[in-house]
């Protein structure tokens, strides 16, 4: 469904501190895939997700979506088929607006916004039902400003907002990293439930190897802007943490040796 071809992204291009954040990534995502993405700091995980979402255009390469190159599409245009949840719980919701106003904004993702009232009466029931599924009591707080909610509640709301109109691709960028362990677990359970219920194609960045192993049908490891591991199918199902760590260090060593050799050679 999505095909990345030689996706390349520099930061500070042509400057003294030029960084090659993504080094010609080739990646094919099938419909219904749930891919967890891991890698050390600066490996390019978030850059990859932001690149898909359209925060910037690729410096080189293509992003094919259903055969069309959407590399030059701006973020808001790609949002018609992409749902996003950010690491910072404050990022995905609007604190000055109420719970129902936020959901109403999300319900018009990718549609024209005109002079009809933002919050429609007929949507309230839908919002209440969806909020009830969260089990956080938010269904009784439709009129409360989101700024009054906790980080976990806001992140749960963001999950709902990203999926109230089922997106063709869901991007989760370390969406539980800023939460306490208990809340993080709740949000992960919610994530799994929503993705299973709605059969969403998902890319999830995480720092947590255990989560990456438990969730999804495919695991990708990035290192220095390249995909160094791509585990799927039966192999992914039987993957253990020890095995992953071992393979990680093995590959990383090879990669680093390669660069060292290139440098020294």
């Amino acid at each position: 469904m999505i095909q990345l071809k030689q996706f390349t992204k520099y930061f500070h291009r042509d400057g003294v501190d030029q960084v090659l954040a993504l080094d010609g990534i080739d990646l094919g995502v099938q419909k219904g895939d749930f891919i967890s993405i891991i890698g050390s700091n600066g490996a390019g995980k978030s850059t990859l997700l932001n690149g898909l979402a359209g925060t910037y255009a690729p410096d080189d390469g293509q992003i094919l979506f259903g055969g069309k190159d959407i590399g030059q599409w701006p973020e808001h245009r790609r949002a018609t088929f992409i749902g996003r949840v950010f690491q910072d719980p404050l990022m995905g919701t609007c604190g000055a607006l109420t719970v129902e106003q936020n959901l109403a904004l999300a319900k018009r993702r990718g549609k024209r916004r005109g002079f009809a009232l933002g919050v429609k009466k007929e949507d309230r029931q839908l919002f209440e039902d969806r909020l009830k599924e969260l089990g956080l009591g938010l269904e009784n707080r439709l009129g409360d400003r989101v700024g009054l909610l906790s980080g976990g509640q806001r992140q749960a709301l963001t999950m709902l907002m990203a999926t109230v109109i089922p997106p063709q691709v869901l991007l989760l960028d370390e969406h539980t990293a800023a939460l306490d362990p208990k809340t993080a677990r709740q949000i992960l359970d919610l994530t799994r439930k929503i993705i299973d219920d709605r059969h969403l194609t998902t890319l999830m960045v995480t720092h947590n190897m255990r989560i990456a192993i438990q969730m999804g049908n495919r695991l990708i490891m990035l290192h220095h802007g390249k995909i160094i591991l791509d585990i799927k199918g039966e192999e992914k199902r039987s993957l253990t943490q020890e095995e992953l760590v071992a393979r990680f260090y093995d590959r990383q060593k090879k990669e680093d040796m390669l660069t060292d050799r290139m440098l020294l050679g």
Partner: peptide, 8 residues
């Protein structure tokens, strides 16, 4: 947030 909800 609003860009990611498709608003220019």
């Amino acid at each position: 947030m609003i860009r990611s909800l498709g608003v220019n």
